[in-house]
Protein backbone atom coordinates (compact mmCIF):
# COMPACT_ATOMS: atom_id res chain seq x y z
CA UNK A 1 0.00 0.00 0.00
CA UNK A 2 1.40 3.43 -0.88
CA UNK A 3 2.00 6.00 1.84
CA UNK A 4 -0.87 8.36 2.53
CA UNK A 5 1.03 10.67 4.87
CA UNK A 6 4.22 12.75 4.55
CA UNK A 7 7.52 10.96 5.09
CA UNK A 8 8.36 10.41 8.74
CA UNK A 9 4.84 9.61 9.86
CA UNK A 10 4.64 5.91 9.03
CA UNK A 11 3.48 5.20 12.57
CA UNK A 12 0.23 7.00 11.76
CA UNK A 13 -0.41 5.21 8.44
CA UNK A 14 -2.62 2.50 10.01
CA UNK A 15 -4.98 5.28 11.16
CA UNK A 16 -4.97 7.39 7.99
CA UNK A 17 -8.17 5.92 6.54
CA UNK A 18 -10.42 5.94 9.57
CA UNK A 19 -9.27 8.81 11.78
CA UNK A 20 -8.85 11.79 9.44
CA UNK A 21 -12.20 13.52 9.98
CA UNK A 22 -13.11 16.07 7.33
CA UNK A 23 -14.94 18.51 9.64
CA UNK A 24 -14.62 19.44 13.29
CA UNK A 25 -17.98 17.78 14.03
CA UNK A 26 -16.80 14.54 12.36
CA UNK A 27 -13.52 14.65 14.24
CA UNK A 28 -15.34 15.17 17.54
CA UNK A 29 -17.56 12.17 16.75
CA UNK A 30 -14.55 9.99 15.87
CA UNK A 31 -13.47 10.18 19.51
CA UNK A 32 -16.25 7.72 20.35
CA UNK A 33 -16.75 6.02 16.97
CA UNK A 34 -14.37 3.09 17.24
CA UNK A 35 -13.37 0.47 19.79
CA UNK A 36 -11.60 1.78 22.88
CA UNK A 37 -8.47 -0.21 22.07
CA UNK A 38 -8.26 1.35 18.61
CA UNK A 39 -8.85 4.83 20.03
CA UNK A 40 -6.11 4.32 22.58
CA UNK A 41 -3.75 3.00 19.90
CA UNK A 42 -4.45 6.08 17.78
CA UNK A 43 -3.79 8.38 20.74
CA UNK A 44 -0.62 6.52 21.62
CA UNK A 45 0.63 6.82 18.03
CA UNK A 46 -0.20 10.55 17.81
CA UNK A 47 1.14 11.71 21.16
CA UNK A 48 4.88 11.37 20.40
CA UNK A 49 4.43 12.77 16.88
CA UNK A 50 2.29 15.83 17.71
CA UNK A 51 5.11 18.39 17.97
CA UNK A 52 6.94 16.92 14.98
CA UNK A 53 3.75 16.78 12.90
CA UNK A 54 2.79 20.37 13.60
CA UNK A 55 6.36 21.56 12.91
CA UNK A 56 6.30 19.71 9.58
CA UNK A 57 2.90 21.14 8.63
CA UNK A 58 3.82 24.67 9.73
CA UNK A 59 6.34 24.74 6.87
CA UNK A 60 3.49 24.98 4.34
CA UNK A 61 0.68 27.54 4.23
CA UNK A 62 -2.62 25.80 5.03
CA UNK A 63 -4.10 26.62 1.62
CA UNK A 64 -1.15 24.99 -0.14
CA UNK A 65 -1.11 21.66 1.68
CA UNK A 66 -0.97 18.64 -0.59
CA UNK A 67 -3.21 15.63 0.00
CA UNK A 68 -0.79 13.88 2.32
CA UNK A 69 -0.31 17.02 4.39
CA UNK A 70 -4.04 17.60 4.57
CA UNK A 71 -4.54 14.05 5.82
CA UNK A 72 -1.85 14.49 8.48
CA UNK A 73 -3.48 17.78 9.50
CA UNK A 74 -6.83 16.08 9.89
CA UNK A 75 -5.36 13.23 11.89
CA UNK A 76 -3.76 15.67 14.32
CA UNK A 77 -7.02 17.63 14.53
CA UNK A 78 -8.84 14.42 15.41
CA UNK A 79 -6.20 13.86 18.05
CA UNK A 80 -7.09 17.33 19.43
CA UNK A 81 -10.38 15.68 20.44
CA UNK A 82 -9.23 12.13 21.14
CA UNK A 83 -6.50 13.27 23.56
CA UNK A 84 -9.27 14.39 25.91
CA UNK A 85 -10.60 10.85 26.32
CA UNK A 86 -7.71 10.23 28.70
CA UNK A 87 -8.87 13.13 30.88
CA UNK A 88 -12.30 11.53 31.19
CA UNK A 89 -10.78 8.11 31.84
CA UNK A 90 -13.48 5.68 33.05
CA UNK A 91 -16.18 8.32 32.50
CA UNK A 92 -15.49 8.60 28.76
CA UNK A 93 -18.36 6.38 27.59
CA UNK A 94 -20.87 8.31 29.69
CA UNK A 95 -19.28 11.59 28.62
CA UNK A 96 -19.60 10.67 24.92
CA UNK A 97 -23.38 10.55 25.35
CA UNK A 98 -23.40 14.01 26.93
CA UNK A 99 -21.34 15.45 24.08
CA UNK A 100 -23.74 14.40 21.33
CA UNK A 101 -26.18 17.15 22.35
CA UNK A 102 -23.50 19.84 22.05
CA UNK A 103 -23.46 20.20 18.24
CA UNK A 104 -20.46 21.85 16.57
CA UNK A 105 -21.81 24.16 13.89
CA UNK A 106 -18.79 26.19 12.80
CA UNK A 107 -15.01 26.37 13.11
CA UNK A 108 -12.44 28.39 11.16
CA UNK A 109 -11.03 25.08 9.88
CA UNK A 110 -14.37 24.25 8.24
CA UNK A 111 -15.04 27.63 6.61
Amino acid sequence: MSAQLPKGFAALEPFAERWAGATAAERADLRAAHAIAERDAFAAACAPLLAQGLARLDQTPLAEQDEAEQRLMRLLLTYAHVSLAAVQGPDEAMHARLRTDMRITRTPADV
Binding site: A28, A80, T107
Partner: peptide, 15 residues
Protein backbone atom coordinates in the same frame (compact mmCIF):
# COMPACT_ATOMS: atom_id res chain seq x y z
CA UNK B 1 -6.03 29.99 11.09
CA UNK B 2 -2.53 31.17 10.18
CA UNK B 3 -0.74 27.84 10.54
CA UNK B 4 -1.26 24.17 11.28
CA UNK B 5 -0.28 24.80 14.89
CA UNK B 6 -2.88 27.51 15.28
CA UNK B 7 -5.53 25.31 13.65
CA UNK B 8 -4.69 22.54 16.10
CA UNK B 9 -4.76 24.98 19.04
CA UNK B 10 -8.19 26.31 18.15
CA UNK B 11 -9.66 22.86 17.60
CA UNK B 12 -8.28 21.60 20.91
CA UNK B 13 -9.34 24.67 22.91
CA UNK B 14 -12.86 24.27 21.52
CA UNK B 15 -12.89 20.56 22.39
Amino acid sequence: DSSASERFAREHLMA
